[in-house]
Amino acid sequence: MRLTDWQLAFEQHLLSETPVANSGFAATLLGGPTLDVDTGLAIYHNAYISRLQDVLRHDFSAILYWLGDDEFAALTEAYVRRYPSAHYSLRWLGERFPTFILEHLVAEQGVPLAELARLEWAFTLAFDAPQGEPLTLHDMASLAPEDWPGLQVTLAPSVQQVFCRFNTVAIWRASKDESDFPHSQALDPVQICLVWRHQNVCHYRSLEPAEICALAGMVTTGWRFSELCAELAVTYAEGAPLQAVTWLKQWVQDGLLERRAP
């Protein structure tokens, strides 16, 4: 048997659902004095699946908390059989897990669970995203008054936006606190939860619709600060500049923004 064919057979064994290898492949192997070939192959088979499940247990601990050990083990085994790892780093193993949950489970269970998985994945993305150059309050203080109206910003590289149609953040929080689980509930209106890293610590915060619109206007539409004030005047009238400054200060303090080159 050529080396590549033998490796292919070995790979097939690891990827198959049962720890017992096909007899053709097993016949190419030798055991030891007290370790037979089938046991040896089962060691590899178990190690393969349990190593991957360990990674997912770590990256999706709230899903684990929600489902419990057995259901989580079944779901993650089905996941890695369906989507074997494609990246050399186990860091990316869970990338398709939220999508898989939607494909694999009935919608009633799958939709809120996938949302929770997306929130947990957002934390992993924020954790090791590039640092970028987030604006600081010090930067803002040294901004000349005439530069304020034209100020434009983007999101810092670590900022992730998770669209929440359910009380996913409360569920996630309960899993971290190991407290009682709230029932899954649809939210009205929906929320955006921001997840980001600031000074090497991950943070999260849910935004109300008014703040979402203001932030999106700045970072996505590309409003200048003066345009933000103008937009807010519709709702806040003469209080608009104060509201704009309050939000901007909060965003900068949180480390959410980078300056967009003028």
Partner: peptide, 10 residues
């Protein structure tokens, strides 16, 4: 392997 990362020292 041929198509997938196996994450084991085979």
């Amino acid at each position: 392997g041929s198509a997938h990362q196996l994450h084991d020292l085979l």
